[in-house]
Structure formats: structure tokens, C-alpha cells
Amino acid sequence: MIPGEFDYHSPRTLQEAVGLLQQHGDGAKIVAGGQSLIPAMRFRLALPEVLIDINTIDGLEYIREDDGHLMIGALTRESDLEESALVQQKYHLLADAARVIADPVVRNRATVGGNLAHADPANDHPAVMLAYNAELIALGPHGTRAIPIDDFFVDLFENALADNEILTEIRIPTPGPGSGGAYYKVERKVGDYAISATAVQLTMNGNTCTAARIGLTNVSAVPMRATGAEQALIGKPITNEVLEAAGQAAATECDPSPDLRGSVAYKRDLTRVVTKRAIRQAVERAQGG
């Protein structure tokens, strides 16, 4: 568990960091919290020639509301999300997730930007941000661009950022009236990735669901939305039958791989159960419960 040789840079500004990315091309890697990258380097699964440490850049750690959005700086630590009063009051889905990502020690270092940029379907933020319909802001040599979350996850560990782009901010639309969200995760122990987890963000009009987005964790090769489950909800009054139909849709459309966490059959059925539970909780919150 000794990493290979690499050069190390700690730029002071984003521009400097982008410049370094330009200079070193795909041999360079950004390190944020290091909680995914460093383990991969120690196993020599990742062998970057150059590490660009963005922890020395000021102004990338913040959580604030502006213009109908929650803005989260890419370098914001999971523990800051977990402790944010704003997140706890208005962004229940995000607050649920922040409490179950990794363990408290990892959460002190791990960043929201790194969690998404890593594009790991086992990570919790991808499903959460898919459910929120978030927007990711990237900075490159030619300025910034906004990437809709639906376009961000390209493949396993592969995102839509160019080699010379840095993810700087995550924007979550502030949920409107009648909205509620929830994250339900089953893990084998604290610090484990999900066996299966479901992120739900929906809007209710009385007992009828008028909008819903659902993201699934660790049951596909690329972070995925459960659009079938969403369709099972939208326009319907929430009954046990509708919940079951949504759960079954998620179980059918997910594509888990067997591993030590469980067989495909177990993961599918668990996806059904956690999807139902997350929806039920989101509905309760939307209805002011």
C-alpha cells in the first residue's frame, strides 16, 4: 500500500489550478478530500504523475442560498453539510444523505465536489443530486459552464468534465411549496457503501404526486435515475399500491452486480423496499409531517 511516484502542486487560485491541468494533461489529478483518490493510489489502481491539491485554494467551501438555489462550494466537507442548519431545515434529502455518507472521520475530509467528480455509483451524492436535478458548475481555460446533473455521469468513474476543467460549485434548486425529499440507505455497517439506497425528491398536491425525481445508489454501473419509479408516482394519489408499483419499477430498472453485499435478487428486492420507504418519508415531509 505504497503509492507510486508523483509530483505535487498546491496552487493558491483556481486559475493557477486550471493552468496546471492544462500543462500536465491527463497525467494530472486534482485531489480534494483524498478519500477516494488516495486509497486508489495506495493500491496503485490510480497512478497520477501530478497531484494538484485544491485544499490550498480559498473560497471553495461554502453553503448558501441565492437566486432560488442552494449553492455548495465544491470543496465543502461532508461534515459541514451535516451540521448546516440551512440544509437541515430546507434540504431534507441532502441532510439525510450527509448523515450516512462514510463515517464521521471520513466526512471531516471528504468533499461534495470530490464525491460527485469521482462518478462512483456507490457514492451517495450522485443519486441525491439526480433527485434534486442539480446543476454542476465547471471552470476551464475558457471560463465556466453549467452541466445539468443528468449529463454529468458518463461511465463508471467517468464524468463530463474535460481534463482541464475543475468542478467549482453544485447548485440545487430550492424545493418549492408542497415538496419533500428523503434518502433511505441500507448499509452493512457504518462507513460502508450502500447495499442499496434511494433518493427521492417530490412535490405533492394534497395526496397527489405532481412531480418526482428518484436516484438510486450502488445498483448500476453508472449513477442512475429510476424514471420508471418516477412515472409510477407522478399524477397519482399515494396509496400502498402506488408505493409498491414504484418500488417494483425501481427493482426492475436497476441493474445491480452481485458482490459481498448481496446477490442480484437481494439487491433488487432491497431496492424495492428502500424506494418505498424513501417515497413514504418524502411524502410525509411534503405533507408537512
Binding site: S263, D269, K276
Partner: peptide
Amino acid sequence: ITPEKVWQALRDAGVTE
């Protein structure tokens, strides 16, 4: 006794949620 083993025993017994 992993969650999956218990789940399997429950489903074999016809118990589900």
C-alpha cells in the same frame, strides 16, 4: 448472519414488506 441471509430466510417463509 448478514442482511441477505435473513432476507432469504424471510422470503422463503413468505414474509415480505
